[in-house]
Simulated scan of single mutants.
Amino acid sequence: MASVRRASRNKNDILMKAGDVVAARGFENTRFSDVAGHAGTSVSTLQYLFGNREDLVVQALRARSAYLLEEARRRSAEIADPLERLRWVAGHLAAHDGEPEAARAEWMLWVEYWRTALRDEELAAESIVAYDGWLQLVRDAVEAAVRAGLINPPADLDRVAQGACAIADGLGIQIALRRPGVDWERAGEITRAWLAAALDCPEINLTDR
């Protein structure tokens, strides 16, 4: 029972590890035994905490997506220069990690998240809220640059945010598919170039300011 209590306290850690497994194996092929091995716990503990495999996978998708958004918000807020923040946000939309396989794993997880949401109304509603969080990340960065007098206010800020996220999503799928010539660096370059054009601010696309 003590081990179960410890596991309960570390439930979020288990969900993060479960996310790794889902990214590698997919929703249907993720088993309790896979997660238990990767998380360093037991199948019985997973059954106690999550009940069944489907609930474990769905909770892992929720936890990992929430974590990625919160990390993006935190790291964005740490960048004082508004144009540098815009550059970082544009690049981060397309790839969440500098390591190629880590970036691909995160996009594999997002693909599983979206696939699962298509069949689960509750998760679909949550995914819309999560997506709105990414749109707001772009809006906030653009508005900060506007307040600093570095760019002109866009005629349609929502269109800019939607466009940046949509381009990044499309590139992310190509990263997941390992399309030649589309790695996380290239995806970031393309997203930054689009945002620079949309905001009429070439500096967003510069690697060094």
Score class of each variant (00 low, 15 high):
12 N>I: 13
13 D>M: 03
13 D>N: 08
14 I>L: 09
17 K>D: 06
18 A>P: 07
19 G>T: 11
21 V>F: 09
21 V>R: 08
21 V>P: 09
23 A>F: 07
23 A>C: 09
24 A>Q: 15
24 A>V: 01
25 R>V: 00
27 F>D: 05
27 F>H: 14
30 T>S: 13
31 R>M: 06
33 S>N: 08
35 V>K: 09
35 V>M: 05
36 A>K: 04
36 A>H: 05
38 H>T: 12
41 T>H: 01
51 G>N: 09
53 R>N: 09
54 E>R: 15
60 A>W: 06
61 L>W: 11
64 R>G: 03
64 R>Q: 11
66 A>Q: 09
69 L>A: 07
69 L>N: 03
71 E>N: 11
71 E>L: 14
71 E>S: 11
73 R>D: 00
75 R>D: 11
77 A>V: 02
77 A>W: 04
78 E>Q: 15
79 I>N: 04
80 A>E: 10
80 A>I: 00
82 P>R: 05
82 P>F: 01
83 L>R: 10
94 A>Q: 03
95 A>I: 10
97 D>T: 00
98 G>N: 12
100 P>F: 12
106 E>N: 12
107 W>Q: 12
108 M>E: 13
110 W>G: 00
111 V>D: 08
115 R>G: 05
116 T>C: 12
117 A>G: 15
117 A>E: 09
119 R>T: 15
120 D>C: 12
121 E>C: 07
121 E>R: 15
123 L>Q: 07
123 L>V: 04
124 A>G: 05
125 A>D: 15
127 S>K: 08
127 S>Q: 06
128 I>P: 01
128 I>K: 04
128 I>D: 04
130 A>T: 06
130 A>P: 00
132 D>L: 14
134 W>R: 11
136 Q>L: 04
136 Q>R: 14
137 L>A: 11
138 V>K: 11
142 V>N: 02
144 A>F: 02
146 V>I: 10
153 P>Q: 10
155 A>V: 09
156 D>Q: 08
157 L>A: 04
158 D>A: 15
